[in-house]
Design a binder for these strands. Sequence first.
DNA 1: CGATAAGCGAGACGGTACGTCTCGTCTTTGA
DNA 2: TCAAAGACGAGACGTACCGTCTCGCTTATCG
Lengths: 191, 191, 191, 191
Amino acid sequence: VVDELPRPHTGRRRNEATRQAILDASLGMLLSGDTAITMDGLAAAARVSKQTIYRWWPTKAAVLAEALTAGAKARVPAADTGTVLGDLTAFLIATFRGANDPAVAQALRLIMAEAQSDPQAAEVLHAYTAERRTELRTILDRGRERGQLSADLDLDMVIDQAFGVVWYRLLVGHAPLTRRAAVALAKTLLR
Amino acid sequence: VVDELPRPHTGRRRNEATRQAILDASLGMLLSGDTAITMDGLAAAARVSKQTIYRWWPTKAAVLAEALTAGAKARVPAADTGTVLGDLTAFLIATFRGANDPAVAQALRLIMAEAQSDPQAAEVLHAYTAERRTELRTILDRGRERGQLSADLDLDMVIDQAFGVVWYRLLVGHAPLTRRAAVALAKTLLR
Amino acid sequence: VVDELPRPHTGRRRNEATRQAILDASLGMLLSGDTAITMDGLAAAARVSKQTIYRWWPTKAAVLAEALTAGAKARVPAADTGTVLGDLTAFLIATFRGANDPAVAQALRLIMAEAQSDPQAAEVLHAYTAERRTELRTILDRGRERGQLSADLDLDMVIDQAFGVVWYRLLVGHAPLTRRAAVALAKTLLR
Amino acid sequence: VVDELPRPHTGRRRNEATRQAILDASLGMLLSGDTAITMDGLAAAARVSKQTIYRWWPTKAAVLAEALTAGAKARVPAADTGTVLGDLTAFLIATFRGANDPAVAQALRLIMAEAQSDPQAAEVLHAYTAERRTELRTILDRGRERGQLSADLDLDMVIDQAFGVVWYRLLVGHAPLTRRAAVALAKTLLR
DNA sequence: CGATAAGCGAGACGGTACGTCTCGTCTTTGA
DNA sequence: TCAAAGACGAGACGTACCGTCTCGCTTATCG
């Protein structure tokens, strides 16, 4: 009996330009601050049929999430100033500045909102936050190695406090994410 | 000169029983864990016309928020244990426990999500968070009066850190809101 | 001690001014050509409460109908020119002219439309048309007495034809209700 | 030179079965004598979404009108009896019988009522009446060619009288549309 | 080279919820 | 007792998106 290997592929290939057009349009709408992003609107903006979107992504949130994370890469590079406080301060300043960009803020808010009801968006949010946590963790670990942090400090809690403040202010909007605030937060965290 | 006082009120008064029925039904649906709460469903459950809901609340989120906060009153009583650390720990334990209730968690997440796109939901969220902040502020102020807090401590930043952690964990879900975590957070904050 | 005369009436009397205000407002809205006349709007326009309207009329159509017929009285006086043809022609000219007034036309159309679904409006329409038919009948009867009409002429059918043309043109709007048309119709009817 | 003809059509075609289902359901509800035909009810009865109805018809009346006229085709075939009086009598008898069917009567009344406030319904009514008028006109023209009608007879006025009587009786309901009445009307018209 | 297998744009479709509108009734207070 | 003000239940309205489903065309790969 001969192995019935399925053909590796037949038919037309996926159009990469179309894929990009969809992601670009998504990011554009995300950044434009439109609160109501609809699939019809997205399809129209990308000059693509809805079916083409649904062929490759299962959910609206999935598209938006991919668009967001693809565009958000390496926005906050990890510096090395020699001291934890310096590194943390730099990290927070950069983070605050990023979150201060209206477009980014809008996008982050939207993805957070979607994640509350859409599991796939939640997954993307998870991946994003995990990556950011790892970055901050690296800074703190380096400080600990250098003996610049007291041994009993709960680093995970510090990380939660740092990002907690960012998200809390971003989502509630009761206080701005200024440079001064970043400096103060860093100081408070390592007090 | 005669004061032309307008009549204080005419016409049928708002039916308090109806108001309660709506809030009760809201809370019930919230607690039942239904992700999809519809206005038609809510109206039916409360045996009320949709218009009556919309007469008094601008948004679905507003109803749910009021239902939630009305039900959440006195869930976190401000204790007075004699020390700031004690008070703060008690406050955070109570807060974490509240947010751990699946129903409350669900509701808070929903309102936060809505607030990102609905200004009126945002207002409700604002009111809610402001009230919670004030409560925590009271505890910290008392500690400062007693000389239990260093003078240079930025109390607003401490508050942001506290609630930041709660919301961050609630929304992202990367870590649980355990009693142990509440104790650790309190300790870290007042270090 | 004062004479205890039995009260001739208890309670506040019906306010005739209010009644008039309602009818006036109704007529006003009717004539203004507003297609959408609402009870709330009518009450507001008459500076009256809705309940007051419903206290005296059972239906929206009933109010409008009364407003209309009250205002339409004696629009077409029956002339006596000596010949049936003369009388009929005068009657039709007057009728056509009345129906040509945009306000009256609008009101008649509205009441006819309402009467198709509202029994009370239908009743009013009946009363109105019956009265108009009687008027025309009087003219024709007079002609017959004078021997100006052939004996076999079906007067009811003639009346139906006369008003039929008026309503048909009014409602469908395919042809105008000109003076010339009135003359032609009279001539055709008595041919 | 290359003609850049646009594609004649793209996308899924209109589902004829759906169209029929809607018209059938409309006619069904019309014939059932329900006074209150709702779009929700119609959509449910046709097992169709409301949006699909609104995609193709602008108004409830438009749907009902099309349902009616589609079903009313060839209800009154133009006969040729040899004489105008014969043809006209046959035509009127058929017309009266049609308008006597409670379902048809109901539908006609509804459309006439709608047409008074809805321009699109008015358009439908226009088309319907124009077509009927043309049919009757054909009969009369044939009679004139045959020399069976006096030269000075205003045919348009005769047509208005004929349909005027039908509509007037249909809408006001003061007299029935009997066969006897049809015969009498024909005789009166051609006297 | 023709058959077969996708990819794709256009757009119709069933479904669900939305928030608004109007109706006719009910309730409260002041005159 | 009447009237103004206005809350209320009921239920239809027309709209907005969702995610799916044709339809006809356009590439690609394979036999």
